[in-house]
Nucleic acid binder design. Structure first.
Lengths: 210, 210
DNA sequence: CACCCAAGTGTTAGTTACTAACATGATGGT
DNA sequence: ACCATCATGTTAGTAACTAACACTTGGGTG
């Protein structure tokens, strides 16, 4: 909390970015993603269409959320290589989700509501769903790199790819359910249940059986 | 092989469709998906741009392949409900892949080469990869329906969703590897290996332990 | 065989996402 | 006080689609 010295320019920039995105999600939610043009969003936010594109490369990016891929990858890399693959990845995913949705401030609650709005759109709109799935594909690559099985041979790398993709798919199912429940169920719990349903009890139960 | 009585119109129609798609995949492979316009494809195929859109709703559909979702769903529905979820789904996927890539005629070999070209584009082009992942999402819904766990309660349905999505993700990893190997390794074997890496030996070994 | 309907195709005009290039006004350091 | 830089606006252009209308041709019907 010490590098709090953003320029006026930077503050303005991130503020318009936030404004544009907020108006976009609201309009998309109210009238449907396809029925709202980028020009509409720009007008609602009081900027030009070009400014929207300067902040968000595509219309889809107005809704897509950056998952903390960096954070997840770090946790995976830090995990013990002695554990089975699915547990290494699964634990990292649960861990990251805890830090992601946790917190109980006022701002945090608003953030979570916004996040749920975005995810609702992502699940229901084909174009957004497709892009979101592809971004999880990128997350998969980051995790596989962090696992460090590339050098062990092509077969080990293949197994790492397979196990990681399966874990992420289970997490995606949990995410979908989380949205359907409007965020009432705790996300980490949902992920743990999804992993258990896919890989069995021993893939998740980190508390016993060290 | 007995309902061979297609109209001349229908034959012409499917022939132009095939022609357009073949030229499209060739051009995309040679110059890159983004560098080729729909007008280019139309010109190469000797038709108007409008005709291309009449056969393929979007440019992406020129490359996307219909996976035999119907076939897979039927096999899942026919499998014994006593088996664990991942084995029910996994066996169906392996089974379907066997019937899909099998065969050894001349036409079959050409089909497989075309299929590999399409998949290569799907893996390397972001827009196509995203759409492909979304189509597998649709496959997931079909499989979950076929599993028949919807009526058993919301928790069972959630477990079915999770396990199915994980299986499909593993299959997708196998598909990607298959493309990288240019189809040299047998696809069913790759799927089996991916499933084993994710879920352990007992998820696949159908030969012993009935 | 003549007739007519419908299907496949072409043409044109329009919308929308997105890009490139240049102009302008404000910010921030010197 | 001065100037470079950055955020933004404006304009013009490309390409993926869509809608509407006209034309040709295969195919069934009298």
């Amino acid at each position: 909390m010490s590098e709090r010295q953003p320029n006026l320019r930077e503050r303005r920039r991130s503020e318009t970015r936030r404004l544009v995105q907020a108006h976009a999600v609201r309009l998309f939610t109210d009238h449907g993603y396809d029925a709202v043009t980028v020009a509409d969003v720009a007008e609602a936010a009081g900027v030009s269409a070009m400014t929207v594109y300067r902040h968000f490369p595509t219309k889809e990016d107005l809704v897509l959320i950056d998952q903390p891929a960096q954070l997840i990858a770090e946790r995976v890399a830090a995990s013990s290589a002695a554990q089975p693959l699915v547990r290494r990845v699964g634990s990292a995913l649960i861990d990251a989700a805890t830090n992601w949705t946790g917190g109980n401030g006022d701002e945090q609650a608003a953030n979570e509501r916004f996040l749920l709005d975005c995810l609702r759109l992502m699940v229901s709109t084909p174009a957004l769903r497709a892009r979101h799935l592809d971004s999880q594909y990128a997350l998969q690559q980051a995790i596989v790199d962090a696992l460090g099985y590339d050098a062990t041979g092509p077969d080990a790398a293949f197994r790492a790819q397979a196990a990681t993709s399966a874990c992420i798919a289970a997490m995606h199912t949990a995410l979908t359910r989380w949205v359907e429940d409007d965020g009432h169920t705790k996300l980490p719990d949902l992920i743990a249940r999804a992993l258990t349903a896919s890989f069995g009890d021993d893939a998740v139960a980190t508390r016993r059986k060290d």
